[in-house]
Amino acid sequence: MLEKLSDLMDEWFDRLSWAALGVSIVAACFLVYTNHQEAAAVGVANPHASAPRFALSGGIQPQRPKELEDALAGARKLLEDEKFPEVVSTTENIIKQYPKESFAYVYLARAYTKQDQLEESLKHYRQAVELNPDLVDRKSPDRIGPELKLIVKKAVVKARTKEFKDRPDSKKVLKALYYLQRRLAGGCE
């Protein structure tokens, strides 16, 4: 039986190989096409080569314009004064103008954390770390690793509750949680 199967496999191997070659090429072309469509929708040449490239390039933030510095300082002040709804609206405005500013996401996440909205907070921490991996780097002055570890620890406990599992966005929040866990674990990437 096994011998017959092996012979049959041998006979079909080249045909299957040609099929696999064809499928690989078609799938690659399909991905190129969808990537191109996505790029056209966003309006940039290649969103996957430009947006993550910034993050991959070490999260070195370009010199912030003064307007942005002032806006971030304002958000920080609102956080200190515990005016959390105002922090949310201020940082959301910053993000609209500067979607790659990681600290806007950090302040937004902090505001949600203070309002006990752990799930929202995780999503924004994820965006912040994706934009600026230095946030979880031990050697970086921007480091928020210890703060993030506490949030993740709380979230892991919360993720086991029924209330969390019943949330419509629980999968997205879990993804953010796992991402942050992996980033905090370190590794070579």
């Binding site: 190989s17 696999a20 070659l21 690989s24 090429i25 799938a27 690659a28 991905l31 190129v32 969808t34 990537n35 996957h48 080569a49 993550p52 490239r53 991959l56 994706e130 991402y179 992996r182 980033r183 590794g187 990437e189």
Partner: peptide, 28 residues
């Protein structure tokens, strides 16, 4: 790195998927 092929904790990139498929087609 230059072509955003390398995966990260966030998962594979679209360019990475394309590169792997092209690589498979080439090797086959």
């Amino acid at each position: 790195h230059n072509w955003a092929i390398a995966s990260s904790s966030a998962g594979p990139t679209p360019n990475g998927k394309i590169a792997v498929l092209v690589g498979m087609a080439f090797c086959i």
